[in-house]
Simulated assay, not measured.
Amino acid sequence: MHEKLNLQKQKDFSGVVYVQRKGKVEVEKSYGYANRSHSVKNNIDTRFGIASGCKLFTAIAICQLVEQDKLSFHSKLSECLPYEFKHIDLGVTVHQLLTHTSGIPDYFDEEEMDDFEELWEQNPMYLLRKPADFLPMFSNKPMKFTPGEKFHYNNAGYILLGLIIEAISGMAFSQYVEKYIFRKAAMVHSGYFSLDSLPANTALGYIELPGEELKSNIYSLPVKGGPDGGAFVTAEDMTKLWSNLIHCKLLKEETIKILLSPMIQANKNVFYGYGVWISKKPTGEILKYHVMGYDPGVSFHSAYYPQSSFISTICSNKSEGAFEMMRLVEEIILEK
């Protein structure tokens, strides 16, 4: 497998590939630079931003609170949050927020905007440090469609889920996830770090400009991640997340079945559960459960393949690269 993956050097992949099966590491390989200005190379333990890849953490947190009978998947916004919204339907449920079927307006709608960086021309990214800071960016916009009508990927829905977690737990969202998910899963290197105070061994994200020039993404993302994206993990820590989830260390077995159930169809063979994508084979069998994230200077894929027990994680500190590397990994592991 290493030989085939080395082909990515020709495409200037920057990041880490980590593949594990039943506790045994099959591949651990790093490429490129965590800090190009100082020629610091990425290594297996480098932390990477994972963008929307961490919506799964938010979904797990909600499921934990449901297990504690502090809310239900059918709870409405009006029952969970003390806010009065001008246009948002307060009858939207937790289930609809989790499955991107709520119809609420988004602060970054891919149907209306192509460039994530455009957001920060009117909204200073350095002011966005907690979920409530995002509310002015979408709370006064009209609904997109009737709740439950269809699937439409929505970041703002996960911002509201984060606010629900804060309201119920009495903790800051990032503190809740770090205590009840990262620590329980022994994800000792992961966290919601601010871009202006990153810990050691954390990769800077890089955006390709015309020609071969690169710039860092420090002015292209919210300064601190939250419920819809922006945590930092190591590839090994993400593998621990899957393993602990599958082995019922974070949730009860019956809750895991709900979280991983195909709730809504996104396209032909791809469905969405709670914070997780689910790809099926043409036969209807589950091919993989996976999460992914793309931001300026970030590309990320991580998947669990239930039939073979492989867990693969690709972290990159460039805007592209993870998808192609995942494709190469899957060509190999799906043959086994």
Rank of each mutant, 00 (worst) to 15 (best):
G225H: 11
D228R: 00
E208C: 10
G229W: 14
Y192N: 07
S197K: 13
P227I: 05
L209A: 05
L198A: 08
S220G: 01
G229A: 11
G226P: 00
A200P: 00
M187P: 05
I218K: 12
I218Y: 06
L209C: 09
G229N: 12
L198W: 08
A200V: 01
Y206P: 05
G226K: 00
E208R: 15
L221C: 09
S197E: 08
L221D: 06
V223P: 00
G205I: 11
P199C: 09
I207D: 07
Y219S: 12
N217L: 05
A186L: 14
S220T: 00
H189G: 04
P210Q: 06
E213R: 12
A186V: 13
P222K: 07
S190A: 12
L195V: 03
G205S: 08
L214C: 03
S197L: 01
T202E: 02
S194H: 01
G229R: 12
E208G: 13
S197T: 07
L221A: 06
E213T: 12
L195G: 10
L198P: 06
D196S: 13
L209P: 02
Y206M: 07
L214P: 00
F193G: 03
A203V: 02
N201L: 11
D196T: 11
A203W: 04
D228N: 14
A186H: 15
A203F: 04
T202G: 02
P227M: 10
M187S: 03
S190M: 10
V223T: 15
V188S: 13
A203Y: 03
Y192W: 13
G225N: 12
S194I: 00
P227C: 01
D228E: 14
G226F: 04
Y192M: 11
G205V: 03
I207C: 10
E212Q: 14
T202K: 01
P227S: 15
L221S: 09
L198G: 10
P222G: 05
F193A: 03
K224P: 00
L214I: 06
L221F: 02
P222A: 15
A186T: 13
A200D: 08
G226H: 09
G229L: 11
P199V: 03
F193H: 07
D228G: 01
N217Q: 08
T202C: 07
P199L: 11
H189A: 14
S216I: 04
P227V: 09
I207Y: 09
I207P: 04
S190E: 04
G225W: 11
M187W: 05
D196A: 10
V188G: 01
Y219D: 13
A200L: 05
G211M: 08
L195P: 02
E213D: 12
G211S: 06
E208L: 14
S194A: 15
L195N: 08
G205A: 09
Y219V: 05
G211W: 09
L198M: 12
P222F: 05
Y192C: 02
G211F: 08
L198R: 07
T202D: 01
N201W: 01
T202Y: 01
D228L: 00
D196L: 10
L195D: 08
N217T: 06
A186C: 11
A203G: 02
Y206H: 08
